[in-house]
């Protein structure tokens, strides 16, 4: 039996393989045809001028993905920027409570202020995947970076390598974890939970391979930018109206 045959057999006979088939059926029901990963490439658009900092996305993410409730583990979070006339920026993560907040009492204390939603950038060229010693984190054909929690060693090299602070060590499994673009929803034709609940439509999820997708339209209508482009990670989370102070 050669390796190829073995793999085929495994996919057919392993219970997990059966589950994939079931999932295919389920997604088939949702959009009329079987889900084909290679024909998608997902990304997200974020319109900063629409974000009202209500944190519905953060709460939905924690509920949907069973993220630990403590404020040290986030797959997505909201930052508030306040830029002073001196050019100095005051930044805070509005989802981290328990820290005494530097209240900017007066609107005149800053020249501009806004919220920025952050999440895993699902880089097309992900440094976390490059450094994982066992290949437990990888990019799917549809462009989502996933973590195999059954094989992750918990060495945390990926956490060190992520320039965006998007990864954390799950305190229950002691393995790395991160945003999956709600992969379990997306393959069924649903939106990621954060996009689903955003009241102002500040988040747009879509398929970069489909000309008709909302994301492609978003990229046509806005001048977009990504975070830390100099690192050449090629993020697939695109920001419109991104301020230069945002890192």
């Amino acid at each position: 039996m050669n390796k190829r045959d073995f793999l085929k057999g495994a996919i057919l006979f392993f219970p997990a393989g059966g589950l994939l088939a079931m999932a295919r059926d389920a997604s088939g029901k949702a959009n009329g045809k079987a889900y084909e990963p290679a024909s998608h490439f997902y990304g997200m658009g974020i319109e900063i001028d629409k974000c009202i900092g209500c944190s519905r996305c953060v709460e939905a993410c924690k509920a949907e993905n069973d993220v630990p409730a403590e404020p040290f583990y986030f797959r997505t979070w909201i930052e508030r920027y306040q830029i002073r006339p001196s050019g100095e920026s005051v930044v805070e993560s509005i989802n981290v409570k328990g820290r005494k907040r530097d209240e900017a009492a007066d609107d005149r204390d800053f020249v501009r202020t806004f919220f920025v939603p952050k999440l895993c950038n699902q880089c097309a060229h992900p440094p976390c995947v490059q450094v994982c010693p066992v290949g437990a984190t990888f990019q799917t054909k549809d462009g989502v970076v996933l973590v195999d929690k059954d094989r992750c060693l918990g060495c945390r090299y990926c956490i060190q390598a992520c320039p965006y602070g998007a990864r954390y060590l799950d305190p229950r499994t002691h393995t790395a974890d991160k945003c999956t673009f709600c992969y379990h929803r997306v393959v069924k034709g649903l939106q990621p939970a954060c996009v689903e609940v955003c009241p102002t439509g500040a988040r747009i999820f879509g398929d970069l391979k489909s000309r008709a997708s909302r994301l492609v339209r978003f990229a046509r209508m806005n001048k977009v930018h990504v975070l830390k482009p100099a690192l050449n990670t090629e993020p697939k989370v695109y920001y419109a109206q991104l301020d230069g102070e945002v890192r």
Binding site: V129, Q130, V131, C132, P133, V134, G135, A136, R151, C152, L153, G154, C155, R156, Y157, L169, T173, H174, T175
Partner: peptide, 19 residues
């Protein structure tokens, strides 16, 4: 985090990983 899985590094070493 999971020391009991150290052998994975010998089974499927990721060729792009320095570690």
């Amino acid at each position: 985090g999971r020391p009991e899985r150290f052998y994975e590094i010998l089974l499927t070493p990721n060729p792009t990983s320095a570690m």
